[in-house]
Amino acid sequence: MGFTVYGAAGSGSVPVEAVLTLVGAPHRVVEAATWEGEAERDKVAGANPMRQIPALITPEGETITESAAILLWLTERFPEAGLAPPPGDPRRGQFLRWMSFIPASIYSMYWVRDEPGRLVGDDATAQATVLERTADRIAHCWSVMEAQVTPGRFLMGEDLTVLDLYVAVVSRWRPLRSRFHAVAPRMGEVVRRVDALPDLQAFWAERFPFEGDYAGPFVMSPP
């Protein structure tokens, strides 16, 4: 038996699916674009009472929710893949810091952005203000991370980790890669490299292809 992922193309399930692809773990995806309304959220209700994606069902039948928790759990399930600094590694603290920072400070903004009326009702002007201010907040958070990481080939040095996959996906969301590259140019070099990983080319094309302004006005670096 393999894994089941409740997720959707272009969503927060994509880094989870990317890990399963890299480690060669059999899995299937239950497609549920929860931002599209109640019917889609209902698809996830049996796995996650919050009716949010991603949710992971393990081969043993355990349910794990929350993107960062799933990614960290997968690094422990597949330690041979080397997708996280192990306990005792001097990089471990910063790795855990940024793995927590992304969902707490950035990913959380998208619950508001998906349906701003949840907080401000039907006022179109108020909704537009929410979208503008959350975009500014997201860009600011990326700039804070940019100022405090010291990337090598990847964010934690020379080795790919789930943090790289996480950032590569979330940075594709609005305010899109062009603004991400403007506020986080060193991290931008890393995510271009993740975009170009040979082992994920078919995966990206299927689950989160670049469209329009996702890539920004830059040429991707070689892997």
Rank of each mutant, 00 (worst) to 15 (best):
F3A: 06
Y6H: 12
G7N: 02
G10K: 06
S11P: 11
E17A: 01
T21W: 00
E31N: 13
E31I: 15
A33G: 01
T34S: 12
A39T: 15
R41K: 14
V44L: 03
V44Q: 02
P49E: 08
T58D: 11
G61V: 12
E62L: 14
T65R: 13
E66L: 12
E66S: 06
A69D: 08
A69T: 10
A69C: 13
L74R: 06
R77D: 08
F78Q: 04
L83T: 02
L83Q: 04
L83C: 03
P85L: 08
P86G: 00
G88F: 00
D89A: 02
D89V: 06
P90W: 01
R92E: 06
G93D: 04
G93S: 05
F95N: 10
S100P: 03
S100Q: 11
I102P: 05
A104F: 01
I106A: 14
I106N: 13
W111R: 15
D114K: 10
P116G: 07
R118Y: 05
L119E: 14
G121Y: 12
G121R: 15
D122P: 15
A124V: 15
A126D: 04
A128R: 07
T129Y: 01
T129D: 09
V130R: 04
E132F: 00
R137I: 07
R137C: 05
A139Y: 02
W142F: 14
S143K: 06
M145G: 07
V149S: 06
P151Q: 02
G152H: 04
G152N: 09
M156T: 08
G157T: 05
G157E: 07
E158N: 03
D159P: 09
L160Y: 00
L160W: 00
T161H: 03
V162G: 02
V167M: 13
V167G: 03
V170C: 09
S171H: 05
R174Y: 04
P175S: 05
L176P: 05
F180E: 03
A182V: 13
G188S: 09
E189S: 02
R192L: 07
V194E: 08
V194T: 12
R207Q: 11
A215P: 10
P217K: 09
P217W: 03
M220H: 12
P222R: 07
